[in-house]
Simulated assay, not measured.
Amino acid sequence: MRSWDAQGITLIRRHDPDSITVCWSDATYGRYSDQLWRVCTARRSAVCALTGEKIRRGDAVFRPSPNRRHRPANADAMILASKLDNLPNGVVAARLDEALAA
Rank of each mutant, 00 (worst) to 15 (best):
S3K: 14
N89A: 03
V47I: 15
L11E: 02
I12S: 04
L36E: 11
M1Q: 11
C23K: 10
D97C: 06
T10G: 00
D16N: 15
G30M: 07
I79A: 11
D16M: 07
D34V: 08
A93Q: 12
L87I: 15
M78G: 02
L84R: 07
P66W: 04
Y29I: 01
A73V: 00
G90P: 13
L50M: 11
L80W: 04
Y29S: 03
A93Y: 09
G90F: 09
T28M: 10
M78C: 07
G30C: 01
G30E: 10
N67C: 11
L84Y: 02
D34S: 15
I79E: 00
L100M: 07
A27D: 15
R2G: 00
D18G: 12
A102P: 00
P17F: 11
V91N: 11
V39H: 04
L80F: 03
P66K: 05
L84Q: 03
E53T: 04
A75T: 07
R44D: 14
R44P: 03
K54C: 01
R38I: 12
S19W: 10
Y32F: 11
K54W: 06
P17W: 04
R95H: 10
N89G: 05
E53V: 02
P72A: 07
H70S: 14
V47K: 04
L80S: 02
W37P: 03
D76W: 11
G58T: 05
P72F: 10
H15V: 03
N89F: 15
P88H: 12
D5N: 11
A27T: 06
R44H: 11
K54L: 12
I55Y: 02
T10V: 12
D85V: 12
D5I: 03
L11I: 09
C23E: 00
A42W: 06
T21E: 02
D34F: 09
A102Q: 13
M1V: 15
T28E: 14
V39P: 00
D26V: 03
A93S: 12
R14A: 04
A99Q: 07
I79F: 03
S33Y: 15
R2E: 14
R95M: 04
S65A: 15
P88G: 03
V22F: 03
A77M: 13
W37E: 02
L11S: 05
A93K: 13
A93D: 11
H70G: 08
D76H: 14
R71A: 08
R63W: 00
S65C: 13
S19N: 06
I55P: 00
H70L: 08
R43L: 13
A46P: 02
R63Q: 13
R57H: 10
R14K: 15
A99P: 06
A73H: 12
R63P: 00
W4E: 12
R2N: 14
N74F: 08
M1S: 09
A81T: 01
N86M: 09
V39M: 13
I20D: 00
P17E: 05
L100N: 05
G58N: 03
Q7H: 11
N89R: 14
C48F: 06
H70K: 14
D85H: 15
V39L: 08
A75R: 05
T51M: 07
L50C: 15
R68Y: 10
Y29H: 13
V47H: 06
